[in-house]
Design a protein around this nucleic acid. Structure first.
Length: 480
RNA sequence: CCGGGUAUAGCGGAGCUGGUACCGCGCCACAUUUGGGAUGUGGAGAUCGUGCGUUCGAGUCGCACUACUCGGACCA
């Protein structure tokens, strides 16, 4: 392997130590750097650019479905956070608190937002009075802070970037529609933009968001067969509205409580694409969010005309809407090949004197490593076609990994056997709905419930723990 | 939060029974090179994670702290 020639850039093999491979990729591809505070990471330009591309597309879709962006305060007074009982119980253990303003000790301490439901509710109380004020479809892009005990790049930060949507609706049905609309939006975003197949489902009471009536989620399977929760969409009913005393006058001239949702995805998605698609040569980025979709590498660039011709390729691809970079640095071509592979750039366009004679260029795919010689006249169409093909192929490979590692079982012993033999994966069983049986699975098998899939077969069977006859399908797995 | 490991130049490492630090890669300059991580010559770069202590003297010994990392717990 090329990268073995240099220790400096060596990346731990993926199958030898997946955790170390992941950290190596994050560092070597210059996505992220550590800061001096545990769990607080620096998003470097290349890593942040991936987030910006995700953000751009999600923001477009949010706006297309009627949502508006707002910016709420960073700090939450303790008294405000405490208004909803379940919510504060869930988040208080991981809050960081501001207790001083300048040299003065504050009368009341302020929590640095771990999530902003309470802030939105306080505001909604002031602006929602009539059914004409509904729905309110707000979203904010911000960072939040949760004092996690263990942290890992992208997967679990103390401070992380995300978007949080908070909406208010006149009826439960409308709020539930919104919850599902966003769940579907997240699912199609993961599949169509990140090439990550998802399983849509509902969380158990144990796993749902603190204060929510229902939490829906998209669960993905990483290359190492562990589960990653990629996005969540919560239905709150009118619980927060009651706790925060938010009401509106309906067409019937009677007071009503509005129904609420919240939903979010975070920079954890970047961790997801790394662990779904990466290989032993480093990152493999889904073309639709890759900061650089094609890199033009001149070969023998000191020879007359090569740089100029390469520059022309750059301009043509940029004009065709392809995010393209030309690397005319004086590194050797082989060095550049390895470098951009490590960084996951989907396509490499090589141009040298021999190609110029034949009016062609060489295009190499990151996902398969295949090289093809393309007539210069067909440059744009070939590149655009290949980017789509790469996306489809990356999706298909990830889907195969998901399908190959998804199983069904009837008893907890079978689940344990499958998880141990397969070193992870998803196992479908029936579930009686009791927390005791869910906890027993963690205890006996070491798995947690991922979700109850939205698509239920409607059959009945036995709970793998208590053996009771039941109808609900549930998925178990080891999660990040 | 509990237990194990680690911290020396940008990166990876060496540094003995205490004496102010060495190697490879990278970096800078010049020359020759360029189709899978080029070669030569010259050069720069470190208060040894932080703080306190022992000592004539600490990278080395002791204590504390911080961060990273692997298990576990917790969390989503």
């Amino acid at each position: 392997m090329a990268q073995d020639k240099r220790q400096v850039d060596a990346i731990t093999a993926r199958d030898v130590d997946f955790a170390q491979w992941f950290t190596d990729v994050c560092k070597k591809a210059e996505l992220i750097d550590y800061s001096s505070i545990k769990g607080m990471f620096i998003y470097r330009p290349y890593g942040y650019a991936i987030w910006e591309n995700m953000q751009k597309e999600l923001d477009r879709q949010f706006k297309a479905t009627g949502h508006e962006n707002v910016a709420m305060p960073l700090l939450i007074p303790e008294s405000l956070l405490q208004k909803e009982k379940d919510h504060v119980e869930g988040f208080a253990p991981e809050c960081a608190w501001v207790t001083y303003g300048g040299a003065e000790k504050l009368e009341e301490r302020y929590c640095i937002r771990p999530t902003s439901e309470t802030l939105f509710c306080e505001h909604y109380k002031n602006i929602i009075h009539s059914h004409r004020d509904l729905p309110k479809l707000y979203n904010q892009w911000c960072s939040v802070l949760r004092w996690e005990k263990t942290s890992r790049p992208f997967l679990r930060h103390r401070e992380f970037l995300w978007q949080e949507g908070h909406t208010m609706h006149a009826t439960a049905e409308e709020a539930m529609d919104e919850t599902v609309r966003i769940l579907n939006l997240y699912a199609s975003f993961c599949e169509d933009y990140l090439a990550m197949p998802v399983t849509k489902g509902r969380k158990t009471d144990k796993e749902k968001f603190s204060g929510a009536e229902d939490t829906y989620c998209v669960e993905c399977m990483m290359y190492d067969r562990k589960a990653l929760q990629a996005g969540t969409s919560h239905y709150f009913g009118d619980g927060f509205a009651k706790a925060f005393d938010i009401s509106f006058t309906g067409t019937d001239n009677q007071p009503h409580y509005p129904h609420q949702t919240s939903w979010g995805v975070s920079t954890r998605l970047i961790g997801g694409i790394i662990m779904t698609h990466g290989d032993d040569n480093g990152l493999v980025l889904p073309p639709r969010v890759a900061p650089v979709q094609a890199v033009v590498i001149p070969v023998a660039q000191h020879k007359p005309g090569v740089l100029e011709a390469s520059q022309k390729l750059l301009e043509r691809l940029q004009a065709a809407g392809v995010r393209t970079k030309l690397d005319s640095s004086d590194k050797a071509p082989g060095w550049k090949f390895a470098e951009y592979e490590m960084r996951g750039v989907p396509l490499r366009v090589e141009l040298g004197p021999k190609d110029m004679e034949k009016e062609q260029c060489c295009i190499a795919r990151r996902d398969t490593g295949e090289k093809a010689f393309i007539p210069l006249a067909q440059l744009e169409s070939a590149v655009l076609r290949l980017l789509d093909e790469i996306h489809d192929n990356m999706y298909a490979m990830a889907k195969k990994n998901l399908d190959d590692n998804t199983f069904s079982a009837e008893t907890w012993e079978q689940v344990k056997e499958i998880i141990e033999r397969n070193k992870g994966g998803f196992v479908h069983t029936k579930w009686c709905g009791s927390r005791e049986c869910e906890l027993a699975m963690k205890e006996k098998v070491g798995v947690s419930s991922r979700c109850m899939p939205l698509e239920q077969p409607g059959t009945t069977g036995k709970c793998p723990v208590c053996g009771k006859e039941c109808a609900t399908d549930i998925i178990w797995g080891v999660a990040y």
